[in-house]
Design a protein around this nucleic acid. Sequence first.
DNA 1: CATGAATGAGATTTCATTCAT
DNA 2: TATGAATGAAATCTCATTCAT
Lengths: 182, 182, 182, 182
Amino acid sequence: MDEFIARGFAATRLDEIAKRAGVAKGTIYLHFKDKESMFEELVRTVIVPVVTRLTTLPPPTGTVRDLVETFASNFLKEVIGTRRGDLVRLIVAEGPRFPSVADFYYREVVSRGIAGMRALIELGIARGEIREKNLARFPQILVAPAMIAVIWQSLFARHAPLDAQEMLRVHLDLIFGERRTT
Amino acid sequence: MDEFIARGFAATRLDEIAKRAGVAKGTIYLHFKDKESMFEELVRTVIVPVVTRLTTLPPPTGTVRDLVETFASNFLKEVIGTRRGDLVRLIVAEGPRFPSVADFYYREVVSRGIAGMRALIELGIARGEIREKNLARFPQILVAPAMIAVIWQSLFARHAPLDAQEMLRVHLDLIFGERRTT
Amino acid sequence: MDEFIARGFAATRLDEIAKRAGVAKGTIYLHFKDKESMFEELVRTVIVPVVTRLTTLPPPTGTVRDLVETFASNFLKEVIGTRRGDLVRLIVAEGPRFPSVADFYYREVVSRGIAGMRALIELGIARGEIREKNLARFPQILVAPAMIAVIWQSLFARHAPLDAQEMLRVHLDLIFGERRTT
Amino acid sequence: MDEFIARGFAATRLDEIAKRAGVAKGTIYLHFKDKESMFEELVRTVIVPVVTRLTTLPPPTGTVRDLVETFASNFLKEVIGTRRGDLVRLIVAEGPRFPSVADFYYREVVSRGIAGMRALIELGIARGEIREKNLARFPQILVAPAMIAVIWQSLFARHAPLDAQEMLRVHLDLIFGERRTT
DNA sequence: CATGAATGAGATTTCATTCAT
DNA sequence: TATGAATGAAATCTCATTCAT
């Protein structure tokens, strides 16, 4: 997977994969039909634990903002600037040529993520924490800066480092209203 | 360029490019050193008019929200779901393997765009249209949903069409406060 | 053997052979040195019963024509258009690359067959059933149409079915003189 | 073609073909789609002149036996024991796996040859040179020994050389009746 | 005896690049 | 300046053979 992430599908050599895996080239074909299937199966394999993580969310205690903040800080630690973040970029890159990958990613991650966010937003609205009622129609807005941070890290971090944590905090302020710092 | 957008750098064949360009394969080498240079130069060529557009902004009349809205609606028409939108995805995809492309894109488009947005935001804050003062530190937040819309269109539009226009409106409501509809 | 017949030596996969034999691929190497030896030994194994058949000819009763006719009708039933016929074609196909196979086939089948036919022809000449005395020098002539029938079946049967039985009858008429049908 | 004749389709290496042709391996793919097409096209190319030969038969002068004898002696010189003879064996060998080749060979050579022979036989019968009237139904009988000779040369010549010329003469004696030698 | 995972040499095929015309 | 045939390195994939279990 690291090879695919680093080079993209077409530029990745089975030679390199075999070498990294410590097996002979032929061995790969005992496990995968061909390069395409390998790519698709690998992406799935890598995505599954992410999904399991998301679905076993911590119990909803505290304010909605606390929940979202916890979520954001996890995302910061475990996705942005990590191999997992690059996976997102890989899917953006190869999605159009691997519809099955895009489909899978949508079904397993995106649609669930959107649904989860929507539930949170509705809760926030009900509790009066969020004023903008229409936000529930577009949970993408809540997630957008996090996604941008992921992409920014792999493309522009060298030129202009981005304080993702702070950016997400500001974004939450925008949504939940400025937090009173004690 | 259409070929690169449709297939990515590695999967694009010079054969196809030559055919589409109506020249022989050898002719390409009279204009470009090799495939990589061609890619880089093409991306630059395509980006330049975008930049010119952005820098020749309409004179700042009306409220900041009006300005941003005009900008958003242009973006909607001319980028999201168009070939130009796919160019963004192409850069996200190939950026890590073509630092010079990412650099160029950052320098010519991103940094200028960010600077422009920041100026607008600061104006909005000064005029009292925008309450969240920290937004000026992260203009990315203002742009994020638009970028997400671009990516969404090429990856997930089939599964779940996204009303980008409406989403951007909600986002602006979030930033500028709900608009009083007359 | 069926695999070799269907695909020829080079195109036959040990994988397929193992599967058909209900053993693992490795097991083959407990019985045969390598693919070539296996082919050679298999051909031999299959040829031997044919030889035994031929050498345990029925006792020579009746006219020579009757003998030859019996033989021809057996050949029709048991060789032409059957797997055994394809074996002949296989040997024709692979003979030049497997001299030992061609050798074996010549020694065990061809030379014996030719000798047997010659004896029959000489008997026919002695009894006055066959007029063409030189036929004993080329028993191949007697057998030729039968061989052609074998090849025709596997190559051209689809385009132009051949009534092998009738052809052989006509050929015998040519050699023994027209038969008086009662 | 020599490579295919010597080794058969599957065992022939494009490497060798390229080397013999004095070109690089890639060059082959400028002329042929793949190995299979190359094989099919080569066979066709080689067969065509044979067909042209056959169709531009010498004017039918003299007795039918003379005609057939001329034909047989040409066949002896130009097919039996030559590369062209091996082509016949190649088609026998690969026919079942290359139906299109068998088809082509049947259409262009076999069916025409059979038709031509039939015409000759009918002429022979009409002129009283041939007594066995049914022979016209199976021209294959006339050709069979010639085909056997072709196969014999490539498989068994080493063990038992065959005097093909003499065999064909005897066969013609059988069909036309013994010739009175002056 | 039997297995079957692993091997790695080698086969076909692709494609960016060159160069004589 | 343009061509396109030719190149050959390199990529994917296959498969006979081995060997630890």
